[in-house]
Simulated assay, not measured.
Amino acid sequence: MQLQRKISAKPQERRRHARVKLALLGRYMLEDRREFPCQTIDVSAGGLALTAPVVGALGERVVAYFDALGRIEGIIVRHYEHGFAMTATLTAAKRDKLVNQLMWLVNRKTLGLPEDRRHERITPKEVNTTIRLADKTLIPAKIVDISISGAAVTCAKQAPMGAMVQVGRRRARVVRTFDQGMALEFALPLSFDQFDENVIL
């Protein structure tokens, strides 16, 4: 009976986080800061399997980024012939968010729904910034949300559509205006390994 209990416990342990088969393109960075493209084989709230050109060492820290999932940190736990599996080190809130994202992606694929946003968006801890217009005018602004490709800000004065401005230390183009604010697209995207709530423009 004891042996039977052991055998029956293993599948339950493996299925603690349901794995979803998804092919998502992304990038990953190893501890030596080398970056490579990758594609997910399957994803769960506890980890993911990747097809990858360079496999790091077992136990090595890795940071991966996917437009649909955002930034995921973890360690390499298994090698495959053409890739590796990594854990997902997440807070409880981020884990819940990832579960919701996976459900959305599966339902979107099944129902043929369009992608709602090009990149994951977050609200940084430091929301205060400044907008520098072409005429050197400085405008206080607050960041509503931010992605690796741009930001939405609230401010007292707006620049015209297509105008180049500087938000914090980054050059950006005005791609949309709204009541008391603007949507900006960065001239150069943020580095994905620095894209988290501590990001400062």
Rank of each mutant, 00 (worst) to 15 (best):
G46T: 09
E115Y: 08
Y65M: 01
P37W: 02
G83S: 10
R78S: 09
R34Q: 14
D67L: 04
V106A: 11
I76L: 14
D67S: 13
P53R: 08
E35R: 10
T40V: 10
E73F: 00
L98G: 04
W104E: 15
T89H: 06
G59L: 04
D32V: 04
R78I: 02
T87C: 08
H119D: 06
V106D: 02
L98T: 10
D116K: 15
V43G: 03
L102A: 03
K109D: 15
V55N: 04
T87Q: 05
K94F: 01
I72M: 05
L113Q: 12
A85L: 08
A68Y: 12
P53H: 10
L111F: 11
V63H: 00
V43N: 00
R95V: 05
D116N: 12
V77W: 05
R61Q: 12
A45S: 11
G83N: 09
I41E: 11
Q101P: 00
A92L: 05
P114H: 15
R34F: 09
P53Y: 06
K97V: 00
G47W: 03
V77I: 15
D96V: 01
L50P: 09
H119L: 02
P114T: 14
A68I: 06
A64D: 04
A93C: 03
A64E: 04
V62Q: 06
A68Q: 15
L58C: 02
L105I: 13
E73C: 02
A57T: 10
L113F: 15
V62M: 06
A64P: 03
D67A: 14
T87Y: 06
A49C: 14
M86C: 11
K94V: 01
N107G: 05
A57N: 12
C38M: 14
T110V: 12
T91I: 09
K94R: 14
L48Q: 08
T87G: 08
M86Q: 11
P53W: 10
V43I: 14
W104T: 14
Q101G: 00
D32E: 13
V106Q: 13
R108V: 05
L69E: 06
L111G: 04
F66H: 12
I72K: 07
R61P: 00
F36E: 05
R61D: 09
A52R: 07
C38E: 11
R95S: 12
G56A: 05
V43H: 05
A93M: 10
V43E: 10
G74D: 03
K94S: 13
H82G: 13
L69C: 11
N107M: 14
D32K: 07
I72R: 03
D42H: 02
M86P: 01
